[in-house]
């Protein structure tokens, strides 16, 4: 499920023979043969929503193979193949909430990687809430469904962001929740980029080591 079959990272070189500049999340999972950790999940969410927001993307995340972690810590969606996601009225335009839902599901699967069907990972409540809201699986309490309403506010003045959330409607909402997870919200872009940069670097290091062993 989720396209989590064997990945083939190939060599540490890119198509032109130079060093690789990006790894898919699927490659990362397969190389480590273990799930991502919570901090990496927060970071991939933040970084991916940042690039989706900038690109105004309209395709869903179908598997971990679609998520690219770049050397510089950026996280993007892989370009769509010509016939990808063409089943919805012959086009690939999805709403922002549908794309966020698909991202939440794939991030959860990355956290759940390798676990048996009858096992469940114990997530920290904030991360579980983020995924619940992204995947639209959160139980509505019926009393306050006004959404996140983060439209024009700065990232730095959302000290009580976590308490207000009842729905996520935009990439910005996800990013604000991820930022609110940190002690200093204004540090979110720098911090999460560093986490993703380290994820790339450590995975490449492991890949190089395993290649030498082989």
């Amino acid at each position: 499920a989720g396209g989590e079959g064997p990945a083939e990272p190939g060599t540490a070189s890119g198509a032109a023979g130079g060093p690789r500049d990006a790894l898919s999340l699927r490659e990362i999972l397969c190389l480590y043969n273990q799930p991502i950790n919570e901090e990496q999940a927060w970071a991939v969410c933040f970084q991916c929503c940042g690039s989706l927001r900038a690109a105004a993307a309209r395709r869903r995340v179908r598997s971990a193979a679609d998520i690219r972690v770049w050397r510089d810590g950026a996280v993007t969606l892989a370009p769509a193949a010509a016939d990808d996601d063409a089943g919805k009225l012959g086009c690939s335009h999805y709403t922002e909430t549908e794309i966020i839902e698909s991202l939440g599901i794939i991030i959860y699967k990355a956290l759940d990687y390798g676990l048996k069907e009858n096992e469940e990972r114990e997530l920290s409540p904030p991360l579980e809430q983020l995924i619940d809201l992204m995947a639209n699986t959160a139980e509505a309490d019926g009393s306050n469904d006004e959404g996140y309403e983060a439209a024009d506010e700065g990232l730095e003045d959302e000290g009580d962001a976590k308490r207000k959330v009842s729905a996520i409607r935009s990439y910005r909402d996800v990013m604000k929740l991820c930022a609110a997870h940190l002690p200093a919200e204004s540090e979110a872009p720098k911090h999460y980029q560093a986490v993703c940069r380290a994820l790339f670097a450590e995975t490449m290091e492991l890949h190089t080591f395993l290649t030498k062993i082989k």
Partner: peptide
């Protein structure tokens, strides 16, 4: 470095794993 420590519990019908599974 590179370790991910986490607790595993039995899957629960009302847990997030079940809810995510229903979506896929």
């Amino acid at each position: 470095k590179g370790k991910s420590l986490y607790k595993i519990k039995p899957r629960h019908d009302s847990g997030i794993k079940a809810k995510i599974s229903m979506k896929t």
